[in-house]
């Protein structure tokens, strides 16, 4: 039993880390969303256990809950319980979402790149480095600075996603949608195409390399050549 529990715990903990794990955040955006997830997971667990316990009790304990009128059952369980939870959660999520949006980051510096997708490759263009060549399947970003990603596509719909740095955004042909990501520290982070885009979808992965300020500047100045 002890071994099973240990194995289970290890599995879950080991499962959270990894170069693509949204539960192993490496920047403030992914951190915010991960926090939202843990809060919702806790709330969901409580509600789930509550309803299942009530069900089992009504089924196996004759007379359980018969002192409460059907109307009270329905009003309490169907209205009074969910409404405050849902209202609070919706506003909390809306507030968090607003914080993560492009243009809402207290007006500080932002590094802008374009993620241009095609079957089955990512081309990253550095909008703040005029004349610098674009890079393929590797995105260099400065650490500690919000990065605004403009997702575009040359053919079908793709989706830009770096789980450890923030949410995903679709690259739809004819549109340019934006999202922000950020890495706290220098390092390498895995990225994937999240929208099915044809037979090369599984392999349409890329790598984000975050560099400390001075390193990044030097790298950018030599056109991201190694």
């Amino acid at each position: 039993m002890f071994h099973a529990v240990t194995a289970g715990a290890l599995m879950v903990l080991g499962g959270c880390s990894g170069s693509y794990s949204a539960l192993d955040p490496a920047g403030p955006h992914a951190q915010t969303i991960a926090q939202l997830w843990w809060v919702m997971l806790g709330g969901a667990a409580v509600l789930f256990v509550l309803v299942m316990v009530l069900f089992v009790l009504t089924l196996f304990r004759p007379g359980f809950g018969s002192g409460v009128s059907p109307r009270v059952w329905i009003v309490a369980g169907g209205l009074l319980m969910p409404i405050p939870v849902l209202v609070a959660l919706t506003f909390y999520a809306l507030f968090q979402g607003e914080r993560l949006l492009p243009g809402r980051d207290d007006g500080g510096p932002v590094y802008r790149i374009e993620a241009h997708a095609r079957q089955w490759q990512w081309e990253f263009r550095y909008l703040d480095e005029p004349g610098t060549p674009s890079t393929l399947d590797v995105l260099h970003i400065p650490a500690g600075l919000p990065v605004e990603v403009v997702a575009t596509s040359a053919d079908v719909i793709h989706s830009f996603w770096v789980p450890r740095l923030g949410g995903k955004i679709d690259a739809t042909p004819g549109h340019a949608a934006r999202i922000r990501i950020e890495a706290d520290q220098a390092g390498q982070y895995g990225g994937v195409c999240a929208e099915y885009c044809g037979t090369g979808h599984s392999g349409m992965r890329f790598r984000v390399e975050a560099h400390e300020g001075a390193d990044f500047r030097a790298l950018a100045d030599r056109g991201f050549a190694p």
Binding site: L36, W37, L89, A93, G97, S159, G167, K168
Partner: peptide
């Protein structure tokens, strides 16, 4: 309900 929350969906979608 979790997926209905926009920021979480940005991670979990697809």
């Amino acid at each position: 309900v979790m997926l209905a929350m926009v920021p979480f969906d940005w991670q979990a979608h697809d």
